[in-house]
């Protein structure tokens, strides 16, 4: 995945701008005061950072302010960004491909979060990277879910395995692995049906997908990634907790960051569960997917050093 940095900045630039706008003078050269600290608090809440992280940044800012009454916006941004970097340290997830058999990436998550689109985007990117991916349409439940992935695969020239609507999703996954192996694909990306974490029968169905994959390869799926809608609030932490407990997660994909939301919930998720973040989604086009990088994310929130100088 090339030119990630540029794209990332473009993708999140709207949010960077809007947080800067909201905070007005906070991140500028102005001296800090009680009202600008309040503005900072609002900006952090507005980004869905959640109660804890917000309070932590505010507390540290106030501490620094007590020590140095001449504190300026620039330093506050530096405090915020260093706290955020500390909270997020270790959060960069990277796919390590296995040799000799297909690397299996399984995308799961609640309804409408972006699993199918991310399946297509990942397949597209891996193909551009010179790999040989295949996608599996294991959402046999939702109306036209299979057609949706089929349409993506024909647009993008991706190989696909699918079953009939209403078929056993685990059986499709089983066949998909077999086909991937037989046809020499090095990467298998599995799209699953949306399910709320509160529904235990649907969680059992996921476990079944894992069991049949493990008949082929004990290590499969090598990556179970939870696809989280970046515009959701605190509930995404609960989603991640339950999917992790019931199924086991290797990390996250956070989507829909092309809006004005900052996806701050990922901070809360990482804080509590230490699940790394692999990719961020920035739109509906196949190329709108980026590898997640802490520095890029944090800079997009607080502005980079250069931005603050400007």
């Amino acid at each position: 995945m090339l030119s990630i940095f540029k794209k990332f900045k473009d993708g999140l630039s709207k949010s960077a701008k809007s947080i800067a706008e909201k905070t007005g003078g906070v991140f500028g050269r102005k001296k800090l005061d009680a009202s600008s600290i309040e503005e900072l608090e609002e900006a952090l809440f507005a980004s869905d950072f959640g109660y804890e992280t917000t309070e932590e940044i505010i507390e540290e800012t106030q501490k620094a302010y007590k020590k140095d009454k001449d504190l300026r916006g620039r330093e506050v941004a530096a405090i915020g960004s260093s706290i955020l970097k500390r909270v997020l340290s270790g959060s960069e997830g990277r796919i390590q491909f296995v040799e000799g058999s297909p690397t299996v990436i399984c995308l799961i998550g609640v309804n409408g979060s972006g699993k199918t689109t991310t399946t297509a985007k990942l397949g597209h990117q891996y193909k551009l990277d010179g790999r040989n991916p295949i996608v599996a349409a294991c959402d046999t439940f939702r109306a036209a879910a299979i057609e949706q992935l089929k349409e993506w695969s024909s647009r993008l020239g991706l190989d696909i395995i699918s079953g009939q609507h209403g078929a056993d999703s685990a059986a499709v996954a089983f066949d998909a692995y077999q086909a991937a192996k037989a046809r020499g694909h090095d990467t298998l990306i599995i799209d699953t049906a949306g399910r709320l974490h509160t529904k235990s029968n649907l969680m059992d169905e996921l476990a079944k997908i894992r069991r049949v994959l493990q008949k082929h390869d004990e290590a499969a799926p090598h990556y179970s990634l939870l696809v989280v809608d970046g515009s959701l609030g605190s509930n995404s932490i609960e989603q991640a907790r339950v999917f992790n407990e019931k199924f086991g997660l290797d990390g996250l994909v956070v989507t829909k960051l092309d809006g004005t939301s900052r996806g701050g919930a990922l901070v809360g998720i990482y804080r509590e569960l230490k699940l790394p973040i692999f990719f961020l989604g920035f739109g509906e086009k196949p190329e709108d997917l980026q590898e997640y990088r802490i520095d890029n994310y944090v800079d997009a929130i607080f502005g980079s050093e250069q931005d603050q100088e400007a």
Binding site: D48, L232, G233
Partner: peptide, 11 residues
């Protein structure tokens, strides 16, 4: 609107 939407809901 998704019932789990965050602060973005207002915008």
């Amino acid at each position: 609107v998704d019932g789990a939407i965050g602060q973005e809901a207002v915008n």
